[in-house]
């Protein structure tokens, strides 16, 4: 029997189809985002399949490995993509085929592998990021604090202390809650930017279907002191762009992301915080950006 689930993340809807029994808790991170089928249609559909037929001849575009995931990208002559996505350092991977418009995708997960839901999550994140690239929507690598109706986003390479800084806010800045700890979505509207929780949050199980008005973006850098600086427009661009999921060699995607980032940094102040992992760092960033 085929299961069809519809999810809505940051106002964009997608469909997940599969026939095998994943077990009750496997897709628990998606539960807060479940919506009825409705009439509105959806942005993309991912089907989990047992076999992925070789419909096209693919040429390798590149292999992109980091400590988050290992991703191989292939493209066919008619513009279809194939992605190989694996857990860093693991030899097994999933294979996903996607049409040129990122609307219809099939994935074959590695059988019985402990990282198969890691693979499934990354497939959905990738589809989400690229199918929304021209909808003023950014899938970002960041940790986000919600304070009242306001959102504050912390950026930094893996291991620089995004989560740590969020935790300092939770402990020391009254009214703070964690909205997402790894992969929030930001949407840019006329005159405002909204940050949303998602079903993807790295190693922290924080899957909140909530939103906040984005009031500040802070790039973190470990330092022997605490110091915060407002960034110029170009400096802001240079910190925000690399934090957004993109395939920058794909012109249409890169242009969509560029336009959204340009609008975002025109509205939301950006800062660089050199900091220690201490209360004073949270006090400094909060007193600067939370006005």
């Amino acid at each position: 029997m085929e299961n069809n689930f519809f999810y809505q993340v940051a106002g964009h809807r997608f469909r997940l189809s599969f026939s095998e029994d994943f077990g009750k808790d496997a897709l628990g991170n998606y539960t807060p985002f479940l919506v009825p089928e409705g009439k509105g249609g959806y942005l993309f559909r991912l089907s989990v399949v047992d076999d992925l037929p070789d419909k096209y001849l693919y040429e390798q575009v590149g292999q992109f490995d980091n400590d988050i995931a290992a991703i191989g990208v292939f493209k066919s002559e008619n513009g279809y993509f194939r992605f190989h996505i694996g857990y860093p350092g693991s030899r097994s991977y999933c294979a996903m085929d996607v049409d040129a418009a990122f609307r219809v995708a099939q994935v074959k997960l590695p059988a019985g592998d402990k990282h198969r839901f890691f693979c499934l999550n990354n497939c959905l994140m990738l589809l989400y990021a690229f199918s929304t690239a021209n909808l003023d929507t950014l899938m970002m690598h960041a940790s986000v604090i919600k304070n009242g109706a306001d959102g504050f986003m912390f950026l930094g390479k893996s291991g620089t202390g995004k989560s740590t800084h969020s935790r300092l806010w939770l402990d020391h800045v009254e009214g703070s809650e964690l909205l997402n700890d790894d992969n929030p979505v930001v949407r840019v509207f006329d005159g405002k930017a909204i940050v949303y929780g998602t079903p993807w949050s790295g190693k922290t199980p924080c899957y909140r279907n909530e939103e906040a008005l984005l009031k500040g973006i802070v790039k973190l850098q470990q330092a022997p002191l605490n110091q915060i600086k407002t960034l110029s427009l170009l400096q802001a661009y240079a910190i925000v762009l690399p934090a957004c999921s993109s395939m920058r060699w794909e012109e249409e995607i890169a242009s969509g992301i560029h336009r959204a980032v340009e609008k975002l940094i025109g509205m939301v102040p950006c800062y660089r915080l050199e900091c220690l992992p201490d209360k004073a760092a949270a006090d400094l960033s909060a007193s600067t950006i939370k006005k």
Binding site: G62, L233, L234, Y237, L241, R248, W249, E251, A254, E262
Partner: peptide
């Protein structure tokens, strides 16, 4: 970006 010009490495 705004009124400024930048060159970025976007191609493969």
């Amino acid at each position: 970006v705004g009124k400024e010009y930048i060159v970025a490495g976007e191609g493969l």
